[in-house]
């Protein structure tokens, strides 16, 4: 039985549908990434799964309990790191940890050892007496993780845990996540960093409240049937980009310094690019010479943008292309 089994979850706020018909299954021990732009509905989805936002429709079973019928049973067995920093600035590092230990009912006999263990594990021991408000972003985030895991929950929710944190801290944070996962903790993490998405076991892409696709990063990328090349087109990059975009086989064209990055669906990007820009006698060709062709393996970010375009074509509403992160 999956640790999380969400069926057709929806949530409206007035006229706004924040989450639309989201279904997902998360298996034991997985790192499950929820990927999406700002306002996509990631936090709302998580909040429904932890029992603090009631779904408008749909249902979810989390760690064996129904989140609508018995949210308190769910709350006892999970850890949750909120998107907005939610520790007390006017308490010290140790006091915050102690508070969470009490809040989650860590038994008295176990408490002292567990506090020492977590302080040690997250490297917080030298700062235990420091006021939390004076910690830097990276340290605050470590403390937040420590607090969310003080009671050793089998399931951990992390809502954009690395937002506004420097790359070094982000890297060490993801090491912690993998360590927790290796010890058997199931982890659900939201992000809009694509490099982080690739470190997850499986992903769900949320766009405007709907899940566009779910699977391992590799599966999700492969399913798009993307082919990508980076080419040199001389001086006329602007004209070249214009005609390429006009071709239905081309999914995305982006200038990369002096080069153009061309992504196509279901056909080889090099063939399409050469054909469109072609020689003087090519069909509609501008006679732009295509040189220095490099094939690039599509990544999660490419897949995400392709999916957004797919969705726009499907709903025929011409969604603006997502800016690259």
């Amino acid at each position: 039985m999956p640790v999380i089994d969400a069926q057709h979850l929806s949530r409206r706020f007035g006229d706004l549908v924040a989450v639309r018909d989201v279904s997902m299954q998360v298996e034991h021990g997985e790192i499950f990434g929820v990927l999406g732009a700002n306002g996509a509905g990631k936090s709302t989805t998580l909040r429904m799964l932890v029992g603090i936002v009631t779904p408008t429709s749909g249902s979810a079973t989390v760690v064996g309990h129904d989140v609508v019928a018995d949210p308190e049973a769910v709350k006892r067995r999970i850890g949750y790191m909120t998107q907005r920093f939610s520790l007390y600035d006017d308490l010290t590092v140790f006091e915050n940890l102690e508070f969470y230990a009490g809040l989650y009912g860590v038994p008295r006999a176990r408490k002292r050892a567990r506090l020492a263990e977590v302080l040690e594990l997250r490297g917080l021991d030298p700062r235990r007496r420091q006021l939390t408000g004076t910690l830097s972003g990276g340290w605050k985030q470590r403390l937040a993780l420590a607090c969310a895991t003080i009671h050793e929950p089998p399931l951990l929710f992390l809502d954009e845990p690395t937002a506004g944190v420097d790359p070094v801290s982000r890297r060490s944070f993801w090491e912690s996540i993998h360590d927790l996962s290796a010890q058997g903790t199931t982890i659900v993490v939201t992000t809009h960093y694509m490099d982080e998405a690739e470190r997850c076991h499986r992903l769900a892409f949320i766009f405007r409240g709907s899940v566009l696709d779910t699977g391992t990063p590799q599966e999700v990328v492969d399913r798009r049937g993307l082919s990508i090349v980076e080419v040199h087109v001389g001086e006329r990059t602007h004209d070249a980009a214009r005609v390429l975009r006009a071709d239905p086989r081309v999914d995305e064209v982006a200038p990369f310094g002096p080069r153009l990055r061309v992504a196509t669906l279901d056909e080889d990007a090099e063939t399409v690019t050469r054909e469109v820009l072609g020689g003087v006698d090519g069909p509609g060709g501008l006679g732009i010479a295509v040189t220095d062709v490099r094939h690039v393996a599509p990544d999660v970010e490419d897949a995400f943008i392709a999916m957004v375009h797919e969705d726009a074509r499907l709903h025929d509403e011409g969604a603006p292309p997502e800016p690259r992160a």
């Binding site: 909120t82 007390y88 969470y100």
Partner: peptide, 14 residues
């Protein structure tokens, strides 16, 4: 106001 309520209500406290 400070955003600490969300963490409180997600805990098992009554």
């Amino acid at each position: 106001e400070r955003g600490t309520l969300e963490a409180l209500i997600v805990s098992p406290i009554r």
